[in-house]
């Protein structure tokens, strides 16, 4: 992979992709494809956003300790996804992000989607799952202060992220079927997916309820013991 030595160029790229390249893809897509093929545009946007963070991860000299911790958390997410009905993936992503930072959270969320789909089947939806879980992790990292200190905020965030995940995947359902966004179909998809939405929110709530404090203690202990 290319390494960019200059710090300025790197931070420039980090702003270029979200502020210029992604809007450009959306606008070009709308103009050139005549708004017919939102599937491709959204697919490209999802991929661009994921690549943005992955390249940041590749370029920056992330400590190998942090890198191994990411693999450990990914493995837990994949094993967790084998549990029937209640999936702790989002909850584990949130906890990682809260205690180890947003970028690590994004990595764990996005790569858990990729790796667990080795077992569950890859497809165009992988990019959307990566984006949804990655963003849940990233946002949790940004909000880490209130989420760490207030348990209620953490549980509320868990419920919200369950709903968010379901809404993002409904966008994918509609776009993959219809080729572009259709409000009526989206409403239908949201309503039919309601049991799943409730299930996601509920399982996030349950897992954050039980795992929140112990995970905090364990991460804290690791941080103190090894000085990460």
């Amino acid at each position: 992979m290319l390494t960019i030595p200059s710090q300025k160029a790197r931070s420039f790229l980090r702003w270029l992709i979200p502020l210029v390249l992604i809007p450009l893809t959306v606008i070009l897509g709308a103009v050139v494809f005549d708004e017919k093929r939102h599937l491709w545009i959204s697919f490209a946007v999802a991929l661009l956003a994921v690549i943005l963070f992955l390249t940041g991860f590749e370029r920056r000299a992330v400590g190998s300790r942090r890198m191994v911790l990411v693999s450990v958390m990914i493995a837990f997410c994949v094993i967790g996804r084998l549990i029937p009905f209640f999936k702790p993936v989002a909850a584990l992503t949130v906890l990682t992000a809260v205690y180890l930072g947003g970028e690590t959270g994004f990595m764990v969320g996005a790569l858990s989607a990729l790796l667990s789909n080795f077992y569950f089947g890859q497809g165009p939806w992988t990019a959307f799952q990566m984006l949804a879980w990655g963003l849940i992790g990233l946002l949790a990292g940004i909000l880490s202060k209130p989420l760490q200190s207030r348990r209620l905020a953490l549980l509320f965030y868990g419920v919200g992220s369950g709903v968010f995940y379901s809404l993002v995947m409904d966008v994918w359902t509609v776009i993959s079927y219809h080729g572009h966004f259709h409000a009526g179909l989206y409403l239908g998809a949201v309503v039919t997916a309601l049991p799943y939405t409730v299930l996601y929110a509920l399982s996030n709530f349950i897992f954050l309820w039980f795992l929140g404090r112990p995970f905090g203690e364990k991460f804290g202990r690791i941080k103190r013991k090894y000085g990460i």
């Binding site: 991860f57 890198m67 191994v68 493995a75 094993i79 790796l115």
Partner: peptide
């Protein structure tokens, strides 16, 4: 680096 993270994750499972 990405391949390493993924293959380590796969092994950890």
């Amino acid at each position: 680096r990405l391949a390493l993270v993924l293959s380590m994750g796969l092994r950890y499972v």
